[in-house]
Amino acid sequence: MRILLVDDDQKAARLLARGLQEEGYDVETAHSVDVAAAHNCYAFSLLILDWMLPGKSGVEFCRELREQGVRTPILMLTARDAINDRITGLDTGADDYLTKPFVFEELLAHVRALLRRVELAQPAPITLNDLVIDPQTRGVTRAGARLDLTPKEYAILILLVTHAGEIVSRAQLAEHIWHADLIAIDNLIDVHMKNLRRKLDPPGMAALIQTVRGQGFRISPSGAL
């Protein structure tokens, strides 16, 4: 099991990482969100984030990861123990919350509990025509060829696939992918959709995404192309 530990207190992070490694976990550390973001967060079984980080906070990073479609369990560490802070952390997308100071055995119990959830809830690959999506790794293939999608392209694809056969409006895309008003990002939708189609539909292959004039976009369920 791989764990990414993000904490700007390098001494504390080193001690915590060593303890987890002694328990058999493969641990990588990062001391800022910028460094953490350079990792492929889909490749980890668990993320441990400190709330207070230089530059961007752990809460902000947690929110960004969820918006990108990262479903890796997140354990938030913080000295903030007010009820409102706990609610904020959990509402942002954290799966668990542990206040400092804590004993290592308590953290270890939280880690084991979160990893048990991962083992019990491994998402099955999604198949649509010759398109295969692995939600666990965010891997996407079409006719066996791997597609390199950006987080936004992946999020758009997931929204279309989960509504296969239905029309997804531009307003729905704006709300679910960008959490913004359609007017503010209308042109962005066209740019990302064009790039997604270019990757999904190489020359000689049937187009998966259909434009429904004046209504939005639709991806056809199996056998409907």
Rank of each mutant, 00 (worst) to 15 (best):
A79N: 14
R80A: 13
R80M: 13
R80F: 13
D81L: 09
A82N: 08
A82S: 12
I83R: 11
N84E: 11
N84I: 11
D85L: 06
D85E: 11
R86G: 03
I87P: 02
I87N: 02
G89S: 12
G89K: 10
L90P: 06
L90G: 08
D91F: 04
D91L: 05
D91C: 05
T92N: 08
T92H: 06
G93L: 05
G93F: 08
G93Y: 09
G93H: 08
G93T: 09
G93S: 11
A94P: 11
D95W: 07
D95S: 11
D95A: 08
D96E: 10
D96V: 07
D96H: 10
Y97C: 09
T99R: 11
T99W: 13
K100I: 12
K100C: 13
P101M: 15
F102Y: 14
V103Q: 13
V103I: 12
V103W: 05
V103F: 10
E105V: 05
E106T: 01
L107A: 01
L108M: 05
L108G: 01
A109M: 03
A109K: 03
A109P: 02
H110K: 08
V111H: 01
V111T: 02
V111A: 00
V111C: 00
L114S: 00
L114H: 01
L114M: 03
R116H: 06
R116S: 02
R117D: 08
V118A: 08
V118W: 05
E119K: 11
A121Q: 13
A121G: 14
Q122A: 15
P123V: 07
P123I: 06
A124I: 09
